[in-house]
């Protein structure tokens, strides 16, 4: 068994079937994502999934003036959440959350904290994560003696 063998497998598909025609087949949500966003696709597509969003005081103050998804986003972001968590909690497509978060940011109702680029190779950050992981209690014992 070797990886070369595995890699040669998809050769027949090169330039073949257009992959784009396969998506969306599984299940259609009651409300299509583009309806929630007034037909816009993610202008904020660059926002990483872990981007933190948090309601501003203005946002919380104007909850009553917001409706539906926008209101829900501000409402659950009283404490900081990632875009991914917002998407899950509100059962929205990630790209819908990106678009709406962009709107809310423009309206100063939501603060959007985009992670610095370059974080992934930042030596200090890596050390902090390693130390943080080592410090977490792992109560579920029975580790392999290895």
């Amino acid at each position: 068994m070797s990886r070369q063998g595995g890699r040669s497998d998809p050769a027949g598909r090169r330039g073949g079937e257009p992959a784009g025609e396969t998506h969306g087949a599984e299940r259609a949500p009651a409300v299509r994502p583009f309806m929630v966003t007034d037909g816009r696709v993610a202008a904020e597509a660059g926002l990483p999934v872990e981007t933190q969003v948090v309601a501003t005081a203005e946002g919380l103050g104007q909850l009553g003036a917001l409706a539906f998804e926008r209101r829900a986003i501000v409402e659950i972001c009283g404490t900081p959440l990632s875009l991914a968590e917002v998407a899950v909690k509100l059962r929205l497509h990630l790209n819908v959350v990106r678009v709406l978060a962009g709107d809310l940011r423009a309206g100063r109702l939501l603060a959007v904290h985009v992670p610095r680029s370059g974080t992934s190779s930042d030596i200090d950050v890596l050390r902090r994560v390693i130390d943080g992981l080592r410090a977490i209690p792992t109560s579920v014992g029975s580790r392999d003696a290895d």
Binding site: Q52, T79, P80
Partner: peptide
Amino acid sequence: TETVSAQVGSAVRPPLPV
């Protein structure tokens, strides 16, 4: 993190997400 929005309100400082 970079705060992208201008100084809006006094939002809670989020953690660095990795």
